[in-house]
Structures are given as structure tokens and as C-alpha cells.
Design a protein around this nucleic acid. Structure first.
Length: 556
RNA sequence: UGAGCUAUGGUGUAACGGUAGCACUACAGAUUUUGGUUCUGUCUGUCUAGGUUCGAAUCCUAGUAGCUCAACCA
């Protein structure tokens, strides 16, 4: 028996529509405006729209809502396509609202002919003044009663470029006293003598969102048009245009956008972070953009799992970023290659270990203990090693499982060692540990009978490679920066990036690849940075490992 | 002080008039050559007040709280 997973409210609507025979299969679309980079909020929408047609049958289009030439660019189109593909989805058709400009123009003429649209000469300010308010009805424009013939002639003249920007607009003739402000004769077309990224200089009038989006859905015969909650009031207008135009009845459904703790999600705020150089660009690994998180090492599988677990609904929400981190750890744990890297080296000399001239003992370490068919790599051992400085304490607290004077630990994949002597410089800093190893304790063939509590990662002091490592923390110091007093930027975490210039890694990392994920043992998950790093090895930390020891310490 | 939307543990989401469940987090324990993983267990919830009903998270009424709406943006 398979467990029936309960459906979310949109899936329930679709299931009912399919069952009743309203539709035999469904069509959805992901409709970004190409004026910025996609972030994790968009990822939710992508997973939803594409996930729905995967689940119920049908297809999903990628449609760029490019009706405002002054903010939109081809560069964004490319990055959006890359991000959607990277998330693992395939669109049926790549479409543009600008493909429909001629049809949309025809729709406008149709409404004019029906006496449902008029050309208005008022300025932007005058229109706003006559619009009324939440508590007061609006007033009719003096141009509202122009004849159909005049409206037609004027609108054609608008298209022909006979007017300057802002001189005239086309408005729907609905009701200036409507309780829904969007129904108070909304603007359908405005004049913009601007170059469009696809249609060039072909047009100087451009449709507004409300006169483009629903109609585009309808042209594509989108059955379920899914958007976020702030568009709820637009639905009434969406339906009005479709009804008056007598075109395919697409339906709009709204869900609550996703918010994440310790970050911001609005395009405006993200743009500010980039423009004011609080981060290094849209793809800075601290950004909640898909490109940023990709660079940080997040995987498409983790994103999709996250969207699945969060689900969708209509109430306000603030999802704990810890859930995202859980998802990426869960995936990375299964696929990441284990490697040993020492960040802050402390030298260990094994006094009873004899090195033979020209010979290095190679130890075997499995690449991934989660994989029963794990491959194995070789790790050079030696008389002189590095361990992590904080894996040693002269005066260990209770429950400290690591190395201390007289104590024993296992070196992962290698031998058990005992610390005999601590060497210090004149200033009292520890410079070296002198140890002995237990030859019979070799990993995999241990006959020593000794049990130790701690296992440390290490690298050979002579056979290693160096690398740079970038450690990221949350971008903001508070859970919901947008909801705090004052400017959200006051809450930026200035310690969100820590660069460790030189770390010591086992030689296997010399051939690290872009598409591979690594777990640096006891340190976290890392991936190679995708930027040109001039021949250096630079790793980004995707996420730390869960750390119950530091938690234990905080309690003490 | 108009209209619309929403209200279930710390977080997110189920329960479709009939035992408030799942996941994350937190906590406790077991296993462990990663203080990771895995496994087991525990804590915490129906916004308020009325009503309908044998029975209400669910239906009704009235409150309360939060969000959205007056761009020639999308």
C-alpha cells in the first residue's frame, strides 16, 4: 500500500476539474519578468507549476512577462532559463508576452468597439487624483465619453507614434466607484518610446500587466494560472477582460509566497544589497538567489525536497532556514565525497614511527560510508602530521573526547596515537605535540584491543595540498529583517563571510571537480567555487555539519 | 476609518462534522573509526466569545489579530 499524501488546495481544485471533465489535461506556466535574478521564492513557484503538470499530466510553459521595455533585459532571460533548467525542469514552450503584442492590440480594439475602452488625455497625477480612495469613490475622466470612432482613431494614432510618452493612455471603461480600486477604469496601454529587448523599435505603446497577463494565459490556454496572494484583487479584472473579450477562460489561483528566516526576498532589497556592495553580486553565495545558492553548493534535489516539505497554502509564513539546511545536508550526506582538511594546523610528531627513505605509507579511505559500493582513495601517512588546533586541549573539560596530554585518539583511517609531550615556544604557545602510535591499531586491521572515544581528521605535514576556504553564515542577524524597526540593512550580519586563506588538504583534493560535492570530515559540506580563482583551489562551505559538541559547550 | 484574504505546537503543513497527524527544531537515550549518519523515545497546538449538533479545528454569528489594495511596475 502506498501512503496517500494529502493534496494541497490547488491540487484539490485540479483533481476536481479533471474528475468533473472540465479539463482532460492541464496547462500551467511560470511567468517571470526578465528584470532580475530568480530567488528561492521563485523556486517555490517553479516547483509548484512544473510539479503540478508532472503529477497530473499536461505541460508547463516558460513565459516571460516582458511588457515593460525599460526594465527588462536579455541577460535576465538567459539567467532565468539557466536557473529553471538547473532546478531540473523542462518547459514545453519558451514564450514571451511580447509575442502577443499584435494580438493584444487587436483585443484592445475589440474593447474599444464594444464601448468598453477609451483614450484618456489626463496626466498620471490627474488620473490618480480622480481615482478616489479606499473610502471615497472616484470620479469620471472628462474624456470618458468619447465616441467609439474617436477612441479608435486616437488609439491608432497612439500606435503610430503621434504622441509623446505620457500624453495619452487607453483605459478600460468599468466603474469609477467600484469598491475594488483596480476596477476603477484601469490603464490598459501606455506610451513608451523605448527599445524593447525583443521587438526592438516596432512598438511605442505597451500593454500593462493586467491587460497582458491574463490574455497571454488565455492565448496559451493555460488552465490553472497560479500566482501569489498580492494578485487576489487582480482576479476580478482578469476575469472581466476574459469575459468581455470572449476568449479562453483561464483561471487564476493564488497562494502565499514563501518567506525565509535570516534573509530578505524582495527584488528591491536584493538589488540594494548588490548595488551598495554589501554582497559581491547577485550570485554571491550568501544571497537567497538561485544562482547564489548554486554557487554555494546547494543542489537542485535539496531545493525540490524543500519545496515539497514546506508545501503551499494561503496563510502568511516565515519558514525556518534550518529546514532548507536540513534538506541540503540530507542530500549531500548521500552524495558528498569525504575528504580530510585541516583548517588550523597543529603539528604532531609520531616519535616511534619510522619513515623509510623514499617510501610513503598509503592508507585507504572510503569516499562515502553511506554508499555500500563506495569507491576508495589513498591517503599518505607520515611521521609528521597536522591535526586541528582545537582538537587538542591541555586541560580538557568533562566529556572532551579529543586529544589531551596522556590521552589517546584514533586518527581517521589510520592509527591510534597517544599524546606524550607538549612543546611550546617562548611565548607559551603550543607548537608541537609529541606522540606515539600503536602499530597494531591500523584501521581495518586493528588487533590492539584499545577503545578510544574520539576520532580526529588529519593530513600529512609533507604530502598535502593547500586551498582557500570561504565560510558563510547567515546574511542577517535577525530572523525577519524586513519586520524590524528602521532600515533592514541595519541588521546585516557583518561576519557573514570568513575567508581562511590557507588550509591543508589531503592530496585527493588536488583534482577536485566543479560538479563534485565534498564533505570535509567533521567540518561541513564544501564545493569548488565557480568563479575564476586563478589556478587556486577555492572551496565554498555550503553548510556546516550538525554539531552537538558546540551545543554541549554552550550549555556549560 | 472601505474592500479582499488569512488564523492549528517554536516553524511549516494535514485532518473535508467522528481518536488533532506528519516533517523540521528542541530535549533524552542507543549505535557509531566523522561529537556526522542511523535508530528509539519525550515535550509543546486548534485566536476569543457565543450558537447549531449526540459530537465542532471543521458549520453559523460577533469580535480580535495579521497581510494586501489608491505605480502610465509586475
Amino acid at each position: 500500500m502506498t501512503e496517500e499524501k494529502s493534496l494541497n488546495f490547488i491540487e484539490e481544485i485540479i483533481e476536481a476539474d479533471l474528475k468533473s471533465g472540465k479539463y482532460s489535461s492541464i496547462v500551467t506556466r511560470f511567468p517571470p519578468e526578465p528584470n532580475g535574478y530568480l530567488h528561492i521564492g521563485h523556486a517555490t513557484s517553479i516547483c509548484l507549476n512544473f510539479g503540478l503538470t508532472q503529477k497530473f499530466g499536461g505541460y508547463t510553459n516558460l513565459r516571460f512577462d516582458d511588457t515593460n521595455p525599460v526594465t527588462e533585459e536579455t541577460e535576465y532571460v538567459e539567467s532565468i532559463k539557466e536557473d529553471v533548467k538547473w532546478l531540473g525542469f523542462e518547459w514545453k514552450n519558451e514564450l514571451y508576452a511580447s509575442d502577443y503584442f499584435e494580438q493584444l492590440y487587436g483585443f484592445a480594439l475589440k474593447l474599444i468597439d464594444k464601448g468598453l475602452a477609451y483614450v484618456d488625455d489626463l496626466t498620471s497625477e490627474e488620473i490618480a487624483a480622480l481615482k478616489g480612495s479606499h473610502t471615497e469613490p472616484g470620479k469620471d475622466s472628462p474624456f470618458r465619453s468619447r465616441s467609439i470612432e474617436e477612441n479608435r482613431r486616437l488609439f491608432e494614432a497612439m500606435r503610430a507614434g503621434q504622441f509623446k510618452d505620457g500624453e495619452k493612455v487607453l483605459r478600460a471603461k468599468i466603474d469609477m466607484a467600484h469598491p475594488n480600486m483596480l476596477m476603477r477604469d484601469p490603464i490598459m496601454y501606455r506610451i513608451k518610446h523605448a527599445h524593447h529587448h525583443r521587438t526592438g523599435d516596432q512598438w511605442c505603446i505597451y500593454p500593462m500587466y493586467d491587460f497582458a497577463h491574463g490574455q497571454s494565459d488565455s492565448i496559451e490556454e493555460v488552465t490553472h494560472s497560479i500566482c501569489t496572494l498580492e494578485f487576489v484583487p487582480h482576479r476580478e479584472l482578469y476575469d472581466w477582460f476574459i469575459e468581455k473579450l470572449e476568449i479562453f477562460p483561464s483561471h487564476q489561483y493564488e497562494f502565499a509566497r514563501r518567506n525565509l528566516t535570516y534573509t530578505v526576498m524582495s527584488k528591491r532589497k536584493l538589488l540594494q544589497l548588490v548595488a551598495e556592495k554589501h554582497v559581491d553580486g547577485w550570485d554571491d553565495p550568501r544571497m537567497p538567489t538561485i544562482s547564489g545558492m548554486r554557487r554555494r553548493g546547494y543542489t537542485p534535489e535539496a531545493f525540490r525536497d524543500f519545496c515539497d516539505r514546506v508545501g503551499i497554502a494561503k496563510r502568511e509564513n516565515l519558514v525556518d532556514v534550518g529546514l532548507l539546511e536540513f534538506c541540503v545536508r540530507e542530500h549531500l550526506n548521500k552524495v558528498a565525497l569525504r575528504r580530510m582538511v585541516v583548517f588550523d594546523p597543529l603539528k604532531v610528531v609520531i616519535r616511534n614511527y619510522e619513515e623509510k627513505l623514499g617510501e610513503v605509507e598509503m592508507l585507504k579511505g572510503e569516499d562515502n560510508p553511506e554508499d555500500p559500493e563506495s569507491t576508495v582513495r589513498e591517503i599518505p601517512f607520515g611521521r609528521e602530521l597536522f591535526i586541528e588546533r582545537d582538537d587538542f586541549m591541555e586541560q580538557p573539560p568533562k566529556k572532551f573526547f579529543r586529544l589531551y596530554p596522556g590521552g589517546m585518539v584514533r586518527l581517521k583511517f589510520a592509527y591510534i596515537i597517544r599524546c606524550d609531550e607538549v612543546v611550546k615556544d617562548d611565548a607559551g604557545n603550543i607548537t608541537e605535540l609529541r606522540c606515539t602510535y600503536i602499530p597494531e591499531s591500523k584501521s581495518g586491521e586493528d588487533t590492539s584491543g584499545i577503545n578510544v572515544k574520539g576520532t580526529l581528521h588529519w593530513v600529512s605535514a609533507h604530502n598535502n595540498v593547500t586551498a582557500e576556504v570561504r565560510l558563510y553564515d547567515r546574511l542577517f542577524k535577525v530572523e525577519d529583517p524586513s519586520n524590524e524597526e528602521g532600515d533592514f540593512k541595519d541588521y546585516i550580519n557583518t561576519d557573514s563571510l570568513q575567508v581562511v586563506q590557507t588550509v591543508f588538504a589531503e592530496p585527493a583534493l588536488k583534482t577536485a571537480k566543479m560538479n563534485e560535492r565534498y564533505q570535509f570530515l567533521r567540518k561541513g559540506y564544501f564545493t569548488l567555487d565557480t568563479k575564476d580563482t586563478y589556478g587556486r583551489l577555492v572551496f565554498n562551505r555550503t553548510v556546516t555539519l550538525k554539531d552537538s559538541w558546540s551545543k554541549e559547550q554552550k550549555k556549560a
